[in-house]
């Protein structure tokens, strides 16, 4: 009897491994190995199109260059500004949307679908859409603001600050609904009797929001923050389509700078160093967040 269950256990183990192995293999080949390869490449000088230079090993040289590269510093600043501004706005809008679609009303399913449409639209399409809305001659923004006064029309995307703001706006429009869904899931697990009890005690709607909803929503908000931050750090499509990093370097984000270095200029070693640096920053950030989320989950368990 014992022997048979041992044999069965071993057979189960084998089956478990054959079930996991194909997925792990694909992940390793197309995700894990490339990250390690990037790390390795970043320790070399490689220039596409100048093969006679070879690919000498240069240690951390590329990273030292990166620390002194003013263009990279600018890209880091723009990226950080984009991440902070867009995630905060998305959380705020997401919270409002979540509160709205959490209410019970007729046609709620349709409203939820309508809100999901910006999320489902390809980012490239959203980028072209906002680029067209802020077009200097044909754009909806000018038409709405100035109507017939064609001479007043503004070339929005030609101004550095405004171009940056438009990219943030496009991102907020596209992804607030994703934040809203995560927050909605948090709203749904708050028990109704908490609100009932507070109402009996005479708490106003604001007091109920501040003292019940918001504290209990903390894990969901942190989770939304985590996902949105990771995603905002990777912003590329919007910049590629709308501004190509311009005007000047006002919207030059790290991913776009890395892309240009790697694929336009063909500086494989330096471009890989940029990619690895972005990767490490995201990794560090996500560890910080996961810690915060973990402890907030623990708090909830204690109370």
């Amino acid at each position: 009897m014992i022997r048979m269950s041992q044999v069965k256990g071993r057979r189960d183990n084998l089956a478990a491994w054959t079930m996991v192995a194909p997925a792990l293999l694909v992940t390793m080949i197309f995700a894990l190995y490339p990250v390690l390869d990037s790390l390795w490449l970043s320790l070399h000088h490689i220039f596409v199109g100048i093969p006679k230079l070879g690919s000498p090993f240069v240690g951390l040289d590329n990273y030292l260059t990166l620390l002194r590269d003013p263009a990279a510093q600018q890209a880091l600043l723009v990226t950080l500004a984009f991440v902070v501004l867009s995630t905060l706005l998305e959380l705020a809008c997401g919270l409002i949307i979540a509160l709205v679609i959490h209410e019970r009303f007729r046609g709620r399913g349709l409203v939820r679908a309508a809100i999901l449409i910006p999320w489902a639209i390809p980012t490239v399409v959203a980028s072209q859409l906002w680029r067209y809305i802020f077009n200097d001659q044909y754009g909806f923004a000018n038409l709405l603001l100035f109507g017939n006064r064609v001479t007043d029309y503004i070339p929005w995307l030609a101004y550095p600050g405004i171009a940056f703001g438009i990219i943030v706006l496009a991102d907020v429009w596209k992804t607030s609904s994703f934040a809203a869904l995560l927050i909605l899931a948090g709203l749904q697990v708050i028990p109704d009797d908490l609100y009932d009890a507070a109402r009996v005690d005479g708490a106003t709607i604001w007091q109920r929001f501040w003292h019940i909803t918001l504290p209990l929503l903390k894990p969901a908000l942190l989770l939304a923050l985590l996902f949105r931050t990771m995603d905002a750090f990777r912003v590329f499509d919007l910049v590629f389509v709308m501004t190509q990093g311009g005007p000047g370097d006002a919207t030059q984000v790290l991913q776009f700078y890395g892309y240009q270095t790697l694929f336009t200029e063909g500086r494989i070693g330096y471009g890989s160093a940029i990619s690895v640096a972005v990767f490490l920053m995201i990794l560090a950030l996500s560890l910080v967040y996961l810690r915060a989320i973990g402890s907030s989950l623990l708090e909830r368990r204690h109370t």
């Binding site: 197309f30 995700a31 490339p34 390869d37 990037s38 990777r234 892309y259 940029i274 972005v278 990794l283």
Partner: peptide, 23 residues
């Protein structure tokens, strides 16, 4: 395994772009 998968889902595309292209 679960941790690795979570990690992969957070990768910036740039971090694997060059090697994936070469592959």
């Amino acid at each position: 395994i679960l941790a690795v998968l979570l990690c992969v889902s957070m990768f910036p595309q740039m971090a694997i772009a060059g090697p994936v292209w070469r592959l």
